[in-house]
Amino acid sequence: MSVAAFISIAILTLAGALAAACLRKLIHAALCLVVAFLGLATFYFFLGAEFVGLVQVFVYVGAVAVLIVFTILLTRREDEDAAGFNWGGVIVAVAVFAGLAWTIMKTPSLSVVAPVIEPLTVKRIGEVLMTNYVWPLQCVGLLLTAALIGALVLVMEEKR
């Protein structure tokens, strides 16, 4: 992986994220969010976590983005005052970025290059998931079931 490819993907991802945060039309913002998520998946591929990149494409681009578009279409109304910008939030975000970037630049131990490793296979991930991480896996299954039921209960029509 070369630095030029890395930086060009970074620019694409950050541009997509910035467009998702700043565009006036919600539906355009949701489509730009898809670009940002695809860029992130490319980063995971670059960093050697192919399985996470694939999961990112399936879950975020396949499910979350579609869910957001559905919600936008269900709650669509053209009230323009909702498109206003809160400038205090912008100042806070820029200050947080400045602080984080200053800290990262000042830390000398962070300028390491990636060590050469053997590729992480899906078989290995499955083995670890079924041995060391079996309790977290069960908890996530329970959480997803609870979220499914909770989302259904929240959007169900009340009986009169």
């Binding site: 910035l18 945060a21 700043c22 809160n86 939030g89 975000a93 970025f97």
Partner: peptide, 11 residues
């Protein structure tokens, strides 16, 4: 990316 998310959440 985190700061852009914060911008969207607060702004």
């Amino acid at each position: 990316l985190f700061s852009i998310g914060l911008l969207a959440a607060l702004g």
